[in-house]
Design a binder for these strands. Structure first.
Lengths: 116, 116
DNA sequence: CCATTAATTAACCTATAAGTTAATTAACTT
DNA sequence: AAGTTAATTAACTTATAGGTTAATTAATGG
């Protein structure tokens, strides 16, 4: 398994089922069976997914009678966002390139129009 | 393997070696053996890591004589950033909570000071 | 043409991720 | 006390990730 926090976050979010669970939890807290309902897999499987999310710190569970209420915990996502910081200039650079390319296309079109 | 783009991005970045390679490529393009140099593993292993990054679209390779120059490609990271958008309010919320907690601590300290 | 350098492909090993079913724990309900 | 509901743990299967060494491909340089 992954030792580093970031690695665990990335690897937890690599699974589409787990990302769907995260998306669901944006809407509010939910029990394990509520979370499991939309998926075509056993409750056990979902329970394991939740454990992965929990040990990555992406969710927490509170107990109420026989239910576990799961809630989203965002701090690991914030760390992910911080990690991205180093790379932001790269996509703004390529967006700049795209933009200037688009501008040059437009320019060319205008020239052609003048020719007609 | 992962079908979805986002899943591939997350899973590519889950590995610390691959994140280190990404960090190196921020500094500029590099050949496979240059990239492999800092790591205590075979060139083959690094080559495989590069293939994972490449099929996630996170790097590209150009050929020059017998060298492959690897460069960072940021678009998948931008998609990751977009994915994060949904969750941003969550950590600002918890930062707000932290902030107001800190404020209340400060408040209490001031009260105590007045008592002394 | 042959040797060297850069990188990939092939074949293999081992650990782990993601699922299954069956059994167990724990709390509520009657 | 017995039954029901919620969830976890245990035991198992299968596929894949990440590493190894040996063999192969491809370009350069004597």
């Amino acid at each position: 398994m992954q030792a580093d926090v970031l690695g665990r976050t990335f690897s937890a979010l690599a699974d589409p089922t787990r990302r769907a669970i995260m998306a669901r939890l944006v809407l509010g807290e939910a029990s394990v069976s509520e979370l499991a309902e939309p998926f075509d897999m056993s409750l056990v499987a979902v329970s394991k997914h939740l454990k992965v999310l929990e040990s990555a710190g992406l969710i927490s569970k509170g107990r109420e009678a026989q239910w576990r209420r799961c809630r989203l915990e965002a701090m690991p996502l914030k760390e992910l966002d911080d990690w991205l910081e180093t790379y932001r200039r790269f996509w703004s650079e390529s967006l700049d390139k795209l933009e200037s390319y688009a501008a040059s296309l437009k320019q060319r079109r205008n020239v052609n129009e003048r020719d007609e």
